[in-house]
Structure formats: structure tokens, C-alpha cells
Write a protein that binds this DNA or RNA. Sequence first.
DNA 1: CTTTAGACGAAGTATTA
DNA 2: TAATAATTCGTCTAAAG
Length: 313
Amino acid sequence: MVRQVGYPINQMKNERVCIACGCRNFYRDPVRGESICTSCGCVATGHELNTGPEWRAFSAEEWAARARTGAPPRLTIADKGLSTTIGRSYGDASRYCTTGHGRAAIYRMRKWQIRSWTHGLNLRNLKVAFVEMNRLSSQLGVPSRIKETAAFIYRRALAKRIVRGHSIDGMVAASIYLSCRVHETPRQLDEIAAHAKVERKSLARCVRLILRGADIRAPLPSARNFVSRISSDLSLEGRTVRKALSIIAGAKKTGITVGKHPSGIAGASLYIAGIVEDDRRTQREIANASRVTEVTIRNRYKDMVRKLGIILE
DNA sequence: CTTTAGACGAAGTATTA
DNA sequence: TAATAATTCGTCTAAAG
């Protein structure tokens, strides 16, 4: 279950062609609802986000329960309205994982879900947790698809007895953080901690606990995932974005990115790309948008320029 | 005055003994 | 558990534009 939640079918089918270069390689930024062409860097405001439900249903009754035409999910029926149920048919809506590993994974998912249902104690915990999850999600502006995954992660953590002895709020925040990573639109710990009811430090501890104990595989945040957010904050040109992405790709090949802060890499790449493409921003601007310090931007960009042999001006 | 460069120690993280 | 290495961050100083 490397990717237990895929994009909805209708989004996958809804492939679009870049107006500028004709390719189909869009990098989506659901936070802003924009798609950015990875070939030419042009930004297309995404209609696809609203063409269908952002959530995924694991079963037919789930689909019916979630449809927006009905009453909004109520917390008083937390075991129905807000819970994610995995149906018995093996195979999920995005048609991944229909045999072998995936099948076993879905079986495991289902087992843990049922286990967490049946404990009445957990229900009370879930009610409290979902209140915070809704609050934090809307404050952070995460799409509901990510919120659903976060709920799933939290339920699993609860089922595996990881929450016990730690603050619910911290675990909720950690679930959202991990969910963002699963969906390849990572947020930074600081960003989430700023709106959560816990310190960054304990949030990080919760994240580690879940990662270790709950068998959640969230890909490490990649610098690429931060580029679109930073660049649109700074209104950088498309060609600059594209340049930055190619710098990142080059840097990854040489292996100088491992162990470094991804948004630092992203910021430094955009800084370099800005100079190269004559679409320059100051280190301070880049640092603010990247949510790292100027020092980090400097160190990273010096490193990249030296190791990649980029000539500036 | 603003931007950039670089040095220092503090703090948090990951790995190893 | 303790020690170690590598990293980011905040602050400070200095130079260049």
C-alpha cells in the first residue's frame, strides 16, 4: 500500500494538454488549485479540482453517504458520517493494487478499520479528534481529499494504540502532516505547528511515532513539490520555474540534496533560476516564501553552484 | 540603505557504538 | 543510552552596490 489513496478516477481521465507546449505533464498544486506544466512552466488554473468529488469512496454505501447533496456529515454519527470504510471488494477506485501485495494491504486496512470501529472507547476519541481535524484542516486550507487520508491515518494510529499517552491534537496534526506528504503536496512542520495546538517539537515526535508504529509509508518531501508554491508567492515567470525544476533534477542526480531541507533546495534553485533567467528575487524574498532563513538559501545555492558548475552572469 | 557573504554557537536530527 | 556527525537557524560583522 505504497499509495493507499490515489487521485479520483475522473481526475485521472481528465488529462489536459498544455496550451503553450502541447504536452501533458502537469504538476498539480492542489493547495492553490493550479496545474503547472513541467515542460514549459505555464500555469493553468485548475478546473479539474471542481469537476468531481475530491474524495474517494471505498464502497458504494460510502459513496452514497458522502455525496454532497445530502446533509453534511455530522459528528454525532462519527462512526458513519466521517469514517472511511473499506469495502470487501478487493481493489480500490483508482484500480491500483488489485492483486498480490495490494490485495493483502487492503485486507490489512480493512482489518484495522473494523478493529477500531468495534471499540466504543475509540469512538469518543474519534469524535474529539475529528473536531480538531476539521478545524485544523480548514485553517490550513488543505483539500478534503487530504483530510480524508489524514482521518484514515489517524484511525490507524488509534487502532495501533499509538495515540494512547499522547495528545490527540498532536496526533491529529501529525496525521494531516503525513497526509500532505502522501499526496505529494507536503507542508512544513512549522507551517502546521503554527496553526495546531501543539509545539513543533511534540508534533515532530507524533509524526515519528506514527511513521514507525502505524506502517504508514509517506514519501519524503521533495524539493520539486515546494517549487510551485514558492514561485507563485513571488509571481515568478514560467521559464524561471522550469529552470528551477531542471536545476533540482540535476542536483538530485549528483546526490547533494540528501539530508537537506527540501524547501531550502527549492528556494535556492529558484534563486539561481531567477538570476539565470533574469527574473531575480532577493535572498530575503526567497527565504520568506520558502519558509527557511536566508542563511539556508545562501548555503544551498552556493553548494549547488559549486557542485553543478553553474555560471552566473 | 539594501543586498550579499561568511562565521560562530545553539538546537534538533539521524546514525552508530 | 551516549556519543558523534551533519544540518538548520539566529545573530553578528563586513563588504559591495
